[in-house]
């Protein structure tokens, strides 16, 4: 499929680009744009463009859950099959966490649960209750980027950018775990995040730069 040239620039809230991508996905799937997704307290299930079958057993299997995401408390009614990844993206509109393989292979969906990096595609949303969930949207402080985000920009640690939120979430954990002693240690502990563009050398540089900055070794 031919991509239209020059996607519109992001607005401050990112809505324009998001809308653009939604329309694109809908066009490619031969669908009209879905209505806004079910939010807190509703039981709206949207058809998933990635091919999940619609639920067939009525509303009786739905459960109410409470998720603590980036400091906010979110109440959702979900089918137990809903993964944390789909809850974040489709229900809470947190599109920063990416769906790559959706099978626990690529790391694009990496988020933190209680400060530990996990794969949101293999985590059932219902099982993330009671944990502090941090996504890429929760890293920056106001307008100030997290040192790892800043380092990825400075080191050009990406090309297409699709794996980047997962890379950054993983890198933050890699640094806090203390696995930045050498390039090979960084590569080993970042191996769960695949980059199809092959930006690995710059990702390693970014992790090193951020690790040094977070230790207070450089400005």
């Amino acid at each position: 499929m031919q991509l239209p040239a020059d996607p519109p620039p992001d607005h401050e809230d990112g809505s324009s680009r998001r809308e653009f991508i939604r329309r694109l996905a809908a066009i490619s799937a031969g669908l009209t744009v879905a209505a806004p997704l079910g939010r807190a307290g509703t039981v709206t299930e949207k058809s998933n463009l990635q091919g999940e079958p619609p639920k067939t057993d009525g509303a009786e299997g739905l459960i109410e859950i409470i998720l603590k995401v980036n400091g906010n408390t979110e109440r959702l009614v979900v089918d137990p099959r809903v993964t944390l990844l789909d809850a974040l993206r489709d229900r809470l509109d947190l599109m920063g966490t990416k769906k790559g393989c959706d099978r626990g292979t690529c790391g694009a969906c990496t988020v933190h649960l209680d400060g530990r990096r996990v794969l949101s595609c293999l985590t059932l949303a219902v099982m993330a209750q009671g944990k502090k969930i941090t996504t890429i949207e929760g890293l920056a402080t106001g307008d100030e980027l997290h040192p790892v985000q800043a380092a990825f920009i400075k080191c050009d640690g990406f090309q297409c950018g699709y794996c980047t939120p997962g890379q950054i979430m993983s890198a933050v954990a890699c640094i806090s775990e203390g696995h930045t002693g050498s390039d090979s240690e960084i590569r080993e502990y970042m191996s769960g995040n695949l980059c199809r563009c092959g930006a690995y050398p710059n990702i390693v540089e970014a992790v090193k730069m951020a690790a040094a900055k977070m230790k207070g070794e450089v400005n």
Binding site: G104, G107, T110, R116, R117, V118, L119, L122, T123, S170, A173, C174, E177, H179, Y189, S191, G192, N193
Partner: peptide, 9 residues
């Protein structure tokens, strides 16, 4: 085994 994320899970 696996990756850091999977080992955490």
């Amino acid at each position: 085994s696996a990756s850091a994320q999977i080992r955490n899970m």
